[in-house]
């Protein structure tokens, strides 16, 4: 594992702890998009089905289990939060899920001549998870643009997700150059996903880093 991948993973891990801290210590899920969190849970469950058939490393196994468990817990907390109507969580997620699923059925890494149908279904779900992750932040971005009272911790959560994506891009450049590692589906979707965060970082810069004490 190279340093870029590791920093990316640690930033991703930090994003979970930031969000959990916000939910637990403020006892409020205001500003957190349930739709984005439900999409992330879907992403992790679909992508990490290979927990059952492929062992890469204990690092990978534990991170995958944590990502699924933590996102499931976050979805549970936000969904059952009574103090938050989340009326601004209005993104139409079917416009994300259905195109991602259709695209995954046509653009994937299946090899029907090799492995059985179950392995190929896993390939389709892997591609679906990649496409869905690329756009899963959009409901959260929409909420951030609509809410005035977005807490800093939610913004830091988003920033750590953006850093995670940026370092994965560096990781892929490194791996392509030194290892010949190349998953075009993940790389193209990863570039799209990182570009979506560019919009967020402008907001972050304006609302958090430039915020003056009143």
């Amino acid at each position: 594992m190279n340093i870029f991948r590791f920093v990316g993973d640690m930033s991703h891990l930090a994003s979970f702890f930031l969000l959990l801290a916000k939910l637990i210590y403020t006892k409020s899920s205001t500003g957190v998009s349930l739709k984005t969190q439900a999409l992330y849970l879907t992403v992790f469950v679909c992508r990490y089905l290979d927990l059952l058939v492929a062992f890469v490393s204990w690092y990978n196994e534990l991170m995958k289990i944590f990502f699924i468990a933590a996102s499931a817990y976050i979805v549970y907390v936000v969904a059952t939060s009574t103090r938050n109507s989340n009326a601004s969580d209005t993104y139409r997620v079917e416009f994300l899920v259905i195109p991602a699923l259709v695209l995954a059925c046509f653009v994937n890494e299946t090899h029907w001549s090799k492995g059985g149908w179950s392995l190929n279904v896993m390939e389709i779900l892997w591609a679906f998870s990649i496409y869905l992750e690329a756009v899963a932040v959009l409901p959260q971005l929409k909420m951030l643009h609509q809410l005035e009272d977005t807490t800093n911790i939610t913004m830091h959560y988003m920033a750590s997700l953006g850093i995670y994506r940026a370092f994965y891009l560096l990781n892929w450049v490194y791996r392509l150059y030194y290892e010949g590692y190349w998953h075009p589906i993940a790389v193209v979707a990863g570039i799209v996903q990182t570009l979506l965060y560019a919009d967020f970082f402008i907001l972050y810069y304006q609302s958090v880093l430039l915020r003056l004490p009143s």
């Binding site: 290892e179 010949g180 590692y181």
Partner: peptide, 10 residues
Amino acid sequence: HRVKAPKDEL
């Protein structure tokens, strides 16, 4: 060279 690599990322 580009190789078909296993999926070892998160």
